[in-house]
Simulated assay, not measured.
Amino acid sequence: MTTTRSDIAASSRSTDMGSLAVLFAALLWGTTGTAAHFNQDVSPLATGAFAMGIGGLLQAAIAQPNIMGCLSLLLAQKGRVLLGAVCVVIYPLAFYSSMHLAGVAIGTVITIATAPLAAAILERLFGHHRLTLSWYLSLALGIAGVVMMAMGETATHGGDIVAISAGGDPMATGSGSVPDTDWQRLTGIVLGIIAGTTYAAYSLIARRMMDHGTHARAAMGSLFGVAGIVLIAGLGLSMLVADPRLFATPGNTSVALYMALVPMFLGYIAFGYGLKTVAASKATLLTLFEPLVAALLAVTLVGEHIAPLGWLGMALIAVCLVIQVKPATA
């Protein structure tokens, strides 16, 4: 079968649209930290479980026709579906807990930096995708930029990072500061690595299911639907027994619904669309756009200040994203 110039052009346009869809998803995800700033004393586990759980169930609901149409394929890949769902369950719990224990900057940096590295390793181990020199260059610039952003934010706050993105309570210790004991910080770092790895893993699993003929909505809907049932069931038990604060105030309710419907539902719809044409390693690298959006919103809406080093980090992330998007349009 001969590949025509029009086929190449169509493939290039499809990849371009996929990259833009992933960037749009990252933009929506970048709003979660600012949104959660308005939460009052809500557990990071409740925040993550509700947002990802409701978002996952909604994805499964709108994907029901596609899931039924691909039911035989899904049953044949039930191992992938279950493994991917487990990764989806672990990711939000680990990510929000990482920010709660290690601080917003450190938790975000560890998770965001781990994801593209984990995706590249997994693709090399279980796939045939080859990484380009531009990918390695983008990774170096992106990680350096995220680290510099974190350092700039930390310096601005005098080293005291309040876990607002995790819905943490800065008064929890009674002294007005977030506890910074070594074991908590270390636990937060480990959880950030787990979050980044599970994020990369379910992205790769979803892409692999699509490569084997599963519709994009069916792949994402099945993974997130199974995970959503587990997360909501666990959240319901937790709220009944220990932590009923997720809907304690109108503000908390609004934040919870926003995070479930916009970043976790609409965002992952866009991300699933992008995965149809973009490799998981590139998609996770493009999501470095998320901390850039989060930082800009923190400055403009929350009133935070970022040191010059942080702004330089943003510039490096922008260069990283330009390098990743440009080859598809060349």
Rank of each mutant, 00 (worst) to 15 (best):
V255Q: 03
N66Q: 15
P263R: 02
L27N: 10
A118R: 02
D211H: 15
G272E: 03
A140I: 10
T111Q: 03
I90A: 05
V293Y: 05
A120P: 04
A118T: 05
L204K: 09
P44Q: 04
L204G: 14
W29C: 01
L301V: 10
Y202L: 07
H129N: 13
G251E: 12
I54G: 02
I205V: 06
A294F: 10
L275R: 04
G103F: 02
A113Q: 02
T34N: 08
S11W: 13
G167H: 06
L122G: 09
M52I: 13
A150G: 06
I90S: 03
W183I: 15
P92N: 10
G234Q: 05
A36S: 14
C70E: 13
I164A: 14
R208K: 13
L191H: 02
L309A: 10
V241E: 12
T111H: 02
M264H: 14
G79W: 00
I193K: 04
G53M: 03
A248H: 11
G196N: 00
A298Q: 06
T111R: 00
L204P: 09
S222E: 08
G272C: 01
R80T: 11
G225L: 04
L131N: 11
Y258S: 03
A294G: 09
G48A: 09
A227M: 05
L286I: 04
S281D: 05
G84R: 00
T2N: 14
L71D: 10
Y202F: 11
F265E: 07
I90F: 05
A330S: 15
T108G: 03
G274S: 07
A150P: 01
V230C: 13
T187W: 00
P92F: 07
Y268Q: 03
G56H: 02
A26G: 08
F126G: 12
T114V: 05
G174H: 07
A63C: 05
S175N: 14
G251L: 06
S14C: 12
A315M: 10
G53S: 04
G236K: 09
